[in-house]
Computed example of a mutant assay.
Amino acid sequence: MTAPRPDRQSLPYRDCVGVTIFNQQGNVFIGRRIADHDSEDKTEVEAPWQMPQGGIDKGEDPLRAALRELHEETNITSVSLLAEAPEWIHYDLPDEALGIALKGKYRGQRQRWFAFAFTGKETEIDVHNPGAGKFTAEFDAWRWERLSRTPALIVPFKKDAYDQVVAAFADIPQRFTHI
């Protein structure tokens, strides 16, 4: 007998950050999730490409959380803040993941998204041993991609959230083509 699913409306959103990193060509960093990674969100392996993201610790400032998560997932520290999305961006877990993913405690995530310019050299990026091995690798590969393509690469239940990220930062790629 399976346990009944919790009532979606009774569960809160988990506060998180999302990070959009632009290179000098105006493309964004995306990482491929490790398929067998012991993730709290098992549904992410269906379409594994995504931008860095993660939880905000209790009492942590969202910008500080974004920089921390970026370093923990990619080893990147050489960035310059370009923009912050004007509103929190939400996504809901699909019904089949409710009560299972995100440790079963949340209905989805409420994310604060930041856009940064990558100011370092690509040799700084290390998704296999982020933080010189201090952090568990979450990606097994990475690449630069057009921002507008990212909603098609994410798991379907996050597509609307990624559409909002694209809208929030749509003007940024053009800034790089004018340098």
Rank of each mutant, 00 (worst) to 15 (best):
M1F: 12
A3F: 06
A3V: 08
P4A: 14
P6E: 05
R8W: 02
Q9G: 02
S10Y: 02
P12V: 05
P12E: 07
D15H: 12
V17G: 08
V17K: 08
V19I: 15
V19M: 07
I21T: 07
I21E: 09
G26L: 03
N27D: 14
N27L: 13
F29Y: 15
G31E: 05
R32Y: 02
R33D: 01
I34S: 04
I34N: 06
A35P: 10
S39K: 02
E46T: 14
E46M: 12
E46H: 11
A47S: 13
P48G: 00
P48E: 01
Q50I: 03
Q50E: 06
M51G: 05
Q53V: 01
G54P: 03
I56G: 06
K58Q: 11
E60G: 05
E60K: 05
D61I: 04
L63M: 04
A65G: 10
A65R: 07
L67R: 13
E72M: 00
T74V: 11
V79L: 09
L81R: 14
A83C: 04
A85N: 05
A85Y: 06
P86I: 06
P86G: 14
E87W: 09
L93E: 00
P94W: 00
D95S: 10
E96I: 00
A97V: 08
I100C: 00
L102P: 02
L102V: 00
K103Y: 12
G104T: 05
G104L: 09
K105S: 08
R107F: 01
G108H: 07
G108F: 00
Q109E: 15
Q111P: 01
A117R: 15
T119N: 07
G120E: 08
K121F: 09
E122Q: 15
V127H: 11
V127T: 12
G133A: 09
K134E: 13
T136A: 14
A137W: 03
A137D: 10
W142F: 14
W144Q: 06
R149Q: 15
T150G: 00
P151Y: 09
L153Y: 05
L153C: 04
P156M: 06
K159L: 02
Y162A: 13
A170H: 13
D171G: 13
P173R: 09
P173M: 12
Q174D: 14
F176S: 01
F176G: 01
F176I: 03
T177I: 10
H178T: 15
